[in-house]
């Protein structure tokens, strides 16, 4: 992963790319790419490094959360220097993430994981579509748009894919609540029941 990162930094010095460390035993680290540079980085990976196969595209939702951090401060207490631990709560704003898993069929290497983040979860949810680079991202980006609400600029046909067109929300988001009357629909039966009720009450 580090040599891929080096190659990107050499070829595209102005692009924002950083390594995201994966603490787990799988040690599949990923590259966080700036939103504006995603297209250029993707084309470089495909054309120069041979990552010709975009296997998996996945949306991930990160709602706003609070992170507790312990900070060490040196303070003068009664004329003696002391280290005092204070716990600070920091707000991390929420964002959506599109994750791409790339393989090279030519060189039989991979996976390289690309992550692109949106600005927030409501208004600023656009990222560049990579469908023009890898056609295989087509349906999967539509799925991320449908279920997470990430907008992919430059996608040739960005429509809902699994949910129906009139559906308003994005069900894979962490704060999505399914309506509890989801399966309710008025039937002729209700009218009949109402009539029966009216008749029995009159009698």
């Amino acid at each position: 992963m580090n040599d891929v990162l080096e190659a990107i930094r050499t070829a595209l010095p102005q692009a924002i790319v950083e390594l995201v460390n994966n603490p787990g035993p799988s040690a599949q680290h990923s590259l966080l790419v700036g939103r504006k540079d995603a297209r250029a980085v993707a084309e470089f990976l495909r054309d120069s490094l041979g990552f010709d196969f975009c296997s998996n595209v996945s949306g991930v939702d990160w709602p706003p959360r609070k992170v507790k951090e312990t900070v060490l401060n040196t303070e003068m207490v009664d004329g003696v220097e002391k280290e005092i631990k204070t716990t600070v709560e920091r707000d991390v704003p929420g964002y959506l993430e599109a994750v791409y898993h790339l393989y090279s069929i030519r060189n039989k290497t991979g996976p390289v994981t690309l992550r692109v983040r949106t600005g927030d979860r409501d208004a600023d949810v656009s990222v560049h579509s990579l469908t023009p680079v890898w056609k295989s991202a087509d349906f999967q980006e539509r799925e991320a748009f449908d279920l997470f609400g990430i907008r992919f600029d430059g996608h040739p046909d960005l429509r809902r894919i699994l949910m129906w067109e009139e559906f308003a929300d994005h069900p894979m988001r962490k704060d999505y609540m399914a309506p509890d009357d989801f399966e309710y629909e008025p039937t002729p039966h209700d009218k009949i029941l109402a009539k029966v009720k009216a008749r029995t009450e009159a009698a």
Partner: peptide, 24 residues
């Protein structure tokens, strides 16, 4: 309870590449 992290695992399924991308 797996430790925090993520993994993409895939196999050659009869229909093609079947992969699971998991974040813990």
């Amino acid at each position: 309870r797996p430790p925090a992290g993520e993994a993409y695992g895939r196999i050659e399924g009869p229909k093609g590449e079947l992969g699971f991308y998991l974040i813990a």
